[in-house]
């Protein structure tokens, strides 16, 4: 392959700035979203117990039924982990929770019913899973969460949907900007393209520099956003850790890998796709002429 990216020098700088900025902003918001998501995951882990569904069997249930139901629950689609808490375990948990001895209870029979502790694959699906479990007749009682769990889950769902939609809109917007920018720089190079065509240049040869331009614009926007967000989160987390030290903040280091990977992949993909769309649309137009 000839080095066709040298085929079009003297590029307009203002175009490049526009493409760069739109990708930069998109990537910045995406990074913010990733931060929020990771933070929520972290909190979800801490509040694991609130996010566990407990389904109690009646006291007199037979071990076979318990096993059967456990397998049945495991097979449900939304289910993550399932743990069986038998009567003995329930009793010892109770004793250690209240710091009691076996004798203190003075019971002949174990009054603690066995139960299943069920976790959802994704936290936001907890309520649906709980509904599913309530339908199983062998359970006497199904409940989950503390008082704030539902509110938290609502927020979580809202965050995911709103964030996702916003990101999608932003993605489409920057794709549009990149496409427009690359289209403009293709149109500014009409003379060159005509000459290259007459010299027998292939489609690939003519496209290559524009695709390259798109990817470079994407990458530069993405990498800048990556660096800026890392610095920003560094100070943010510093501030949060000193202001609310008891809260569970993620480590700054944990952000580097996911933000880096997403920034590079996403922004170069955006640039590439935008450039490709621009090339295609211009070729279609000139084919119609």
């Amino acid at each position: 392959m000839p080095k066709s990216k040298e085929a079009f020098h003297h590029r307009g700088t203002s175009y490049i700035v526009m493409g760069f900025l739109s990708i930069f902003i998109t990537q910045l918001l995406l990074n913010l979203f990733i931060f929020g998501y990771l933070e929520l995951e972290q909190m979800g882990g801490v509040w694991q117990s609130s996010f566990t569904i407990r389904a109690f069997f009646p006291e007199e249930v037979s071990p076979e039924v318990v096993e059967d139901v456990k397998e049945k629950v495991k097979a449900l689609p939304l289910v993550g982990e399932v743990k069986l808490v038998d009567s003995e375990e329930a009793k010892s948990r109770f004793l250690s929770y209240f710091n009691l001895q076996e004798e203190d209870l003075g019971l002949e029979e174990n009054p603690f019913p066995p139960s299943l502790e069920v976790q959802a694959q994704r936290v936001e699906e907890l309520p649906f899973l709980a509904q599913e479990l309530e339908k199983i007749e062998e359970f006497e009682e199904v409940f989950y969460g503390g008082e704030n769990t539902d509110a938290l889950l609502r927020f979580y769902r809202f965050f995911l949907t709103a964030g996702g939609l916003l990101l999608l809109a932003l993605f489409v917007f920057s794709l549009l900007v990149v496409t427009t920018v690359i289209r403009a720089s293709i149109q500014a190079r009409e003379t060159e393209i005509e000459v290259w065509n007459l010299m027998g240049a292939t489609k690939r040869f003519i496209r290559a520099p524009f695709i390259y331009q798109g990817v470079m614009e994407g990458l530069s926007g993405g990498v800048t956003a990556f660096v800026v967000s890392l610095v920003f989160f560094h100070f943010l987390l510093d501030f949060l850790n000193t202001s609310f030290p008891l809260f569970f903040w993620i480590n700054w280091e944990e952000l580097i890998l996911p933000l880096g990977v997403v920034s590079i992949l996403m922004s170069s993909f955006l640039g590439f796709l935008g450039a490709l769309l621009a090339c295609n649309s211009i070729e279609e137009e000139s084919a119609k002429k």
Binding site: P2, S4, E192, V195, W196, A201, F205
Partner: peptide, 19 residues
Amino acid sequence: KLVPHWTVFENLISPLLVL
């Protein structure tokens, strides 16, 4: 069909670049 803002040399070698 020359590109005005290219140098003489650049216009001259364009068929070679394509090849």
